[in-house]
Structure formats: C-alpha cells, structure tokens
Design a protein around this nucleic acid. Structure first.
Lengths: 124, 124
DNA sequence: CGCATTGTTCTAGTTGAACTAGAATGACTG
DNA sequence: CAGTCATTCTAGTTCAACTAGAACAATGCG
C-alpha cells in the first residue's frame, strides 16, 4: 500500500502515516529489515512537514516497530513478524464484529480499553 | 466499575467516560435496559462539565449503544449483548498480543485500521 | 395542567495539541 | 571530507477539547 494522508480526516496526520506503515507490516507488505523512505523524502511526497513525518516515525520507534538512526534512516525491526501473525487474528475479530453490527470505532475503543487494563478478562 | 476520569491522561475526558461505559457493558456489568446516571449528576460526581458528559453520551448514542431521551435519561440498548460476546474474543486477542510483546497502542491502532478498511483480510 | 427532571441547542472564552516553518547539530554512509 | 539523515530547538497558526452560562423542549409524575 502506498502511504497516503487525508487532511479532512479526524485522525492526526502523523497518526495516519504511522497507521499506514503499521498496516503494511501487518499485511506482510513490509518485512523486517526493510528501509522506509527518509523523512524528508516522504514529507515531500505527502505534501506535509518534515516534523510531521518524523513524529510518525518516532511513534513507531517507541512501539518497537522501526529503528531510527542518523544518516541511515528508518528500518523495520523484527517485531514485523509478530504484527503479521496478529494481523490474521485481528481480521477474524473484525469479521465477527461486523456480523454483530458493531461500529469500527466501537470495536477499536473496546480493544484499546481492554489492552490498557492490567486484567485482560473483560468477559468474566 | 465506577466511571472515573484522569485529567492527566492523553485521551479526551469525553472519550474516557464513553470508554468506561463501553467497557462496563462488554464486561457484563451493565445490561440492556439499564439506566445510566443523568448527565448532570454524573458531571457533578466526576467534577467535569455537563457538556463533556453529554458529548460522551451522544458518542455512545451514535454507536447505537445507548438511547437518549429528554426527561428520561440514557438507557443501554440491546447492542449490549453483542458487546458482551465480543468482549470474550477481545480478551483472547489481547492475551495473544501480550505474548508477542505488542504494545497496547499498537494493537489498538491495528484493529482500528483493519476495522475501518472495507477488506478485513489484512493477513494476505 | 403544574412542576421537576433531563437531554438539546446556542453562544463564548480558555487551553493545549497538531501542524507548519526555519535553523543548527550530530551520527552514519560512501 | 562530503552528503545524507535523524535530532533538537524556537516560534507562530489553527482547531479540537473543555468549561461556563443560558434558554428550550420532551418526558414523567401528581
């Protein structure tokens, strides 16, 4: 998938950029060791500011998904494999969510809440 | 669970309130037909503005989780059952995510992205 | 009907995040 | 050394979030 941003979206630009890269990895379109375009190049291509792209990259770095080094750029880490495996289960959950008629934002908020809590058993 | 908010959190107050109610329903602590506290009462108890609570309630209404009516207040809809069933699967996904060492925010972003896309098959 | 309760809508002001912009700095590559 | 690229800093603009006060309309109850 090509990285794209939508100024009209409610999501911040830096989050959209990070989301696209994350989704690429989960879908197996980017693998461990792959190099991402430099922040300056990507900023130019997307028509956004350099700092906006860097913020997305730094967010992914904080998540352990990419590695950033001066003079070298951004590379995908070994966490890519885990993301790819999880992608299959996430797709299954999304399918069941749709069968129940649950809105995407509702599902996302539920997962986020469950992941943030120390106890994962919300169904107890 | 008692509804609580944290001003220091990165999440907006209205989202925290909605998250807490959603999580209560998914955990089976609130059921279809239950009445939520009035917006004015909850705002007073949480120490936030009336409009902030109302925004949370209206968000849940837009998701089809609660029903709002003047003079009557907010009541949980029949969607509560679906949320409860999904809660079990969400808990399983969160467990596997933790086994992979994936950060909560990473998982939440992946699910959100997958749910928003027309094609749910992110796993290739 | 009279009255309290409760969500709905409106205006308005403050705060902080997001985005943009420019510049300087330091680490890596060739 | 020279070029690439992330890192860090300051600074200004825009907009969402939150607060505040008020008026309004539908519901429930006696």
């Amino acid at each position: 998938m090509l990285i794209r941003v939508d100024s009209g979206s409610d999501a911040p630009l830096f989050a959209q950029i990070a989301d696209a890269i994350r989704a690429d990895i989960a879908a197996g379109r980017r693998h461990a060791g792959d190099r991402l375009p430099s922040a300056r190049v990507l900023a130019e291509g997307l028509g956004v500011n350099l700092h906006t792209v860097l913020r997305a990259y730094q967010l992914l770095r904080d998540e352990g998904i990419v590695q950033l080094r001066r003079g070298r750029g951004a590379t995908v880490t070994d966490a890519a494999g885990s993301l790819y495996e999880l992608g299959v289960e996430i797709a299954a959950l999304v399918r069941r969510s749709r069968q129940h008629g649950i809105a995407p934002d509702t599902l996302a908020a539920l997962v986020r809440g469950a992941a943030l809590r120390p106890d994962a058993s919300t169904g107890g």
